[in-house]
């Protein structure tokens, strides 16, 4: 009996508009004050639980915070081992002066500079202007930290995708520290995609140097792409990849790219869906370089280039080509 009424209550809590369940619960509630009290508490727990957010890990949150702020949490207290004292003093005698010198050098080059942080909201592309005139456009949820010192400009990025337009400053190199590599530039625009195990850099214009933790750095020019793998090795596939930055500025720059790649990129940039009505079109490669155009205009140019038609079906759906009869 208890199981039956428990199931009925849970079914009712899940579906309060169900008249049959409501009547069954109602008659049970009318049977005693205890039932009413029990139900009130169950309902309170049920509704409160329904208001809960997803789980929160304090430990993960703390690790993410310290990683972004570049601070090292003190280790948990450990028992001291007496016999190690002398060894540690000897180590300290060598290491401490080195640390002091390193700190002094580092302090000079980053004097007066503080770390700043910015995270794009989860719901849209966002941008931040740095104090030197550089601009960073970020995909939803991507975060960066930066510090602009007297002789260097440093950015750190752990995960996400960002397009950087770096202001020219010959006296201060601009570096982006990625999980397994570093990008160094003086003034240029480029796109970075970063994950803890893979990063890539595509240059829009200018030149950048990409170094992994292993091997020689690679110098990239406009259209070039460098991939940093999990081991910190850098490789450079052939081809033109400037289009990788198109999402940030609506500048469509494709050089002999397969139509499929062009259409998928446009879908991402404009948040639209494009249906291809004639499969033969997908065999074409496309070169395109247009700036600041709407989705409709871009597809008109594309359809003209391909010698076919296009149609806008709704605010966010288009079709390219004509279905074969």
């Amino acid at each position: 009996m208890e199981k039956h009424i428990n199931d009925t209550i849970i079914a009712y809590l899940n579906d309060p508009d169900n008249q049959e369940l409501a009547q069954a619960v109602e008659s049970w509630l009318n049977a005693s004050a205890d039932n009413r009290q029990l139900f009130a508490v169950m309902q309170q727990v049920w509704e409160s639980a329904g208001q809960l957010p997803q789980e929160f890990s304090v430990q993960e949150g703390w690790e993410s915070l310290t990683a972004q702020l570049g601070i090292v949490a003190p280790p948990p207290p450990v028992a001291k081992v007496k016999s190690m004292y002398r060894i540690w003093w000897r180590v300290a005698a060598v290491v401490l002066p080195l640390l002091v010198l390193t700190g002094a050098w580092y302090g000079y080059h980053s004097a007066g500079a503080e770390w700043h942080t910015f995270t794009a909201s989860k719901n849209g592309i966002d941008s931040v202007s740095l104090e030197d005139g550089s601009k960073v456009i970020l995909r939803p949820g991507t975060g960066i930290t930066w510090r602009l010192g007297k002789s260097q400009r440093e950015v750190r990025m752990q995960q996400g995708e960002a397009f950087l337009k770096v202001a020219k400053d010959a006296k201060r190199a601009f570096t982006v520290q990625l999980p397994t590599g570093t990008v160094t530039v003086l003034g240029t625009s480029f796109n970075i995609k970063a994950t803890p195990t893979y990063s890539d850099v595509a240059v829009w214009d200018g030149r950048v140097s990409v170094a992994g933790s292993k091997g020689q750095p690679i110098l990239l020019t406009a259209g070039g792409l460098a991939i940093i793998d999990t081991a910190g090795r850098v490789s450079q596939p052939t081809g033109h990849y400037a289009y990788r930055g198109s999402w940030s500025n609506r500048n469509l720059r494709f050089h002999e790219k397969n139509l499929e790649v062009v259409l998928r990129t446009m879908e991402t940039i404009y948040h639209i869906k494009i249906a291809v009505m004639d499969a033969k079109l997908l065999a074409f490669t496309v070169s395109l370089d247009v700036s600041d155009v709407s989705a409709n205009e871009a597809l008109q140019i594309l359809s003209f280039t391909l010698g076919t038609g296009m149609k806008q079906l709704s605010d966010s759906t288009y079709q390219l080509g004509t279905a074969k009869k």
């Binding site: 957010p53 949150g61 993410s64 915070l65 702020l69 942080t117 995270t119 909201s121 989860k122 949820g141």
Partner: peptide, 12 residues
Amino acid sequence: DLAKDIVHNLFV
């Protein structure tokens, strides 16, 4: 997700 970001950014 937004709540997590707000807490993170407050501590930053």
